[in-house]
Design a protein around this nucleic acid. Structure first.
Lengths: 114, 114
DNA sequence: TATATGAGATACCAAATGGTATCATGTCAA
DNA sequence: TTGACATGATACCATTTGGTATCTCATATA
């Protein structure tokens, strides 16, 4: 088994599959935001943004902190790290296979230049 | 912008969102396989596996090489690397103290932009 | 040649997904 | 207290997604 905690990894990958959610993570990396603040960055309704934030929270990529009538959304880098850890399994292939691949590509490029 | 080639990153993240597809990648990391060989590892039909392989190919996570009447599916580490590169943006946030520092800097930048 | 086999192509289905609109609730402030 | 505002909750819709079944095509092989 590769996943240390399979469920968590699945939630994180699921959350990252949507481009809007990835953009939200970038925004939150710069600054904590309320739902409305996040929503103001997009052309979709606040309700849709709320759904995205819920999925991000389920994937443990953000945490939510109530403050009065607002809810502050905060990036949780640890969740992203679980994804990076999963990818780490393939690190060794980036060394050998990737090297060979790169050579093959360059060789192909040379042959096109005829 | 974070993505070097946005479309490619989206395709890769989309492909990785499904646990069956992530398992397929692990199998292919050990050994190249035909569609039927991959399908024999799962309890779903060969047609369903074929769909997964198509999505993996669209995400540039595997490549397909016809050989006679068979089609060899091969892991493409380069596609996974594009995902890792996207995640690299968040490397600095894995340390909370760096996060706070970065936040202050970015906030200053943001207020200039408004 | 005849036949078995690997793969492609559709058509179809149930469930999940991303979105909207609408209404309810809690909290701040005048 | 009353109104304004941030959020929660629900119902609903169109599209995508993961899956099956079935048919056809191409290619080994007896």
């Amino acid at each position: 088994m590769i996943d240390g905690s399979p469920g968590a990894v699945q939630g994180a990958f699921r959350a990252l599959a949507d481009p809007t959610r990835r953009d939200i993570l970038v925004f939150l990396s710069r600054q904590d935001m309320t739902i409305s603040e996040v929503a103001s960055r997009f052309d979709i309704t606040r309700a849709a943004v709320k759904k995205h934030l819920t999925i991000l929270e389920q994937g443990a990529l953000i945490s939510v902190h109530p403050s009065g009538r607002e809810r502050i959304n905060r990036l949780e880098p640890l969740g992203l790290k679980s994804v990076a850890d999963w990818l780490n399994y393939f690190d060794r292939f980036w060394d050998d296979r990737l090297h060979n691949l790169q050579e093959a590509i360059e060789e192909e490029e040379r042959q096109k230049d005829d």
